[in-house]
């Protein structure tokens, strides 16, 4: 564990807590894409299948349970909780996110580190996570203005993988044989997809306006 990875995990944890806070306290998911949340639930479900077979540390298992629990409960809230579901912008959240799943699965079957069931699904989860934010970014374009909590959620979600990139650079220079091109390229693509959002998000800080 290094400071970059810990900062990355904490940023990721903060992003799900901000979203849960917004949904649970003000019972609103305005501006939040259910489709991105569904993709993230699939990402965690396919990435943490090894939670029962390979124990890394208490921290690792605990965080996996937190991410699994939060992503599925957010989907449940947005789909089935009356008050929250009413604030869901179904008409605008129309990105065909299922079209992302199959290509990621095919790619994982073609490009992976080991051809085993767990490893292919793990690789699939990396590719899917790289593009999971797309429905949310499209929804963002359509809803123009978003509230601060949603803006912070997206900022933290984008920032965590950026911190992971620093972690991979650190581990590359400090650990022999630490080379994971698939993870690195997927993580880079994921972070680059936020570039546009980061630009407007920082403009907001400079201009002191809402995120447009």
């Amino acid at each position: 564990m290094n400071i970059f990875r810990l900062a990355g995990d904490m940023t990721h944890l903060a992003s799900v807590l901000v979203l849960l806070l917004k949904i649970h306290t003000i019972k609103s998911c305005a501006g939040v894409s259910l489709r991105t949340q569904e993709l993230y639930a699939i990402v965690f479900a396919t990435r943490y299948l090894d939670i029962f077979t390979s124990f890394v540390s208490v921290y690792n298992t605990f965080m996996k349970l937190v991410f699994l629990g939060s992503s599925f409960s957010i989907v449940w809230y947005m789909r089935y909780h009356k008050a929250v579901h009413r604030t869901y912008d179904r008409e605008q959240d129309t990105f065909r996110h299922w079209f992302l799943v199959l290509p990621c699965l095919v790619l994982a079957l073609l490009i992976h580190e080991k051809f085993t069931f767990l490893e292919v699904l793990w690789t699939f989860s990396l590719y899917l996570e790289a593009v999971a934010i797309l429905p949310q970014l499209v929804l963002l374009q359509r809803t123009r203005n978003i509230d601060n909590l949603t803006g912070q959620y997206i900022f933290l979600l984008g920032g965590y993988r950026g911190l992971y990139i620093l972690n991979w650079i650190y581990r590359y220079f400090t650990e022999p044989h630490f080379v994971h091109w698939i993870t690195w390229i997927a993580g880079l693509v994921q972070t680059l997809l936020y570039a546009d959002f980061f630009y407007y998000y920082f403009l907001r800080f400079i201009g002191g306006r809402g995120v447009e």
């Binding site: 090894d50 077979t53 890394v56 996996k64 991410f67």
Partner: peptide, 10 residues
């Protein structure tokens, strides 16, 4: 060994 056998990152 741990790294090889599985993934130690989230």
């Amino acid at each position: 060994a741990k790294e090889e056998e599985g993934h130690d990152e989230l």
